[in-house]
Design a binder for these strands. Structure first.
Lengths: 113, 113
DNA sequence: GTAATCTACAACCAAATGGTTGTAGATACT
DNA sequence: AGTATCTACAACCATTTGGTTGTAGATTAC
């Protein structure tokens, strides 16, 4: 499966920033399993409804969730696309690290003292 | 290879937060390829040495880099461990998403209208 | 129609973030 | 010895973040 890796710095910032909060990560886990209204989500946390609303907005801005109107409710649904993009970035870092290790190994192999 | 997945919320917060800044991500890419002194890193960015120093400190707090004294310099080296931990988390989210899709597929299969 | 529920959004506040400058300690150079 | 370089760290400042309360609009329930 091909993943679009053309991401602006600002977009990547938003994705990682959104994931840098345990409440938001918990919301992501919940809505990836099944969509939930904002009020339903809010019952799980020891904070105001408005605070949860803001967390959902941050996740939405990062593309980690989408909102779908259903009557007076707004159903929040997890979207795995942004998560994939973050994964691609991390794999790229891992690859850089591997290439360094390989170069170090090569150096040690060609110049044993 | 086994990766320790026992991460405190605060630790995960720090990892993602550290990655939520393009300057810091750029520092990570540089030091994963080969270690560099803080001053050497600072030459690449349009900000004060102290600012770069702070960014390195954030990365260090997240476990993404380590510092090694070498004379009067502090060599900054990339550490892929924290990156792996972040990957494990993202893979977990992806798995949740897959299970939802499977359940949806099962529902559609058993109840065709 | 009225009341209850869900959401949106503004205004406000404390704390954290990302930058600055300045000062001082270690180490290296001549 | 004296100077230049690299780092650490404090103090300060503007902006963002993560929370609050309060008000108002839309939809549902009775």
């Amino acid at each position: 499966m091909v993943v679009d890796t053309e991401l602006s710095d600002a977009q990547v910032d938003r994705i990682f920033r959104a994931l840098a909060d345990s409440t938001r990560r918990d919301i992501v886990t919940r809505v990836l399993t099944g969509e939930q209204s904002v009020t339903a989500l809010a019952t799980h946390y020891d904070m105001s409804f408005a605070a949860v609303q803001k967390h959902v907005a941050v996740l939405e801005g990062a593309g980690l969730v989408t909102k779908h109107p259903h009557g007076r409710e707004r159903m929040v649904r997890g979207d795995v696309t942004a998560i994939r993009k973050a994964q691609v970035l991390l794999e790229r870092y891992e690859q850089l690290w591997r290439s360094r290790i390989e170069r170090l190994d090569a150096l040690l192999a060609e110049d044993p003292h």
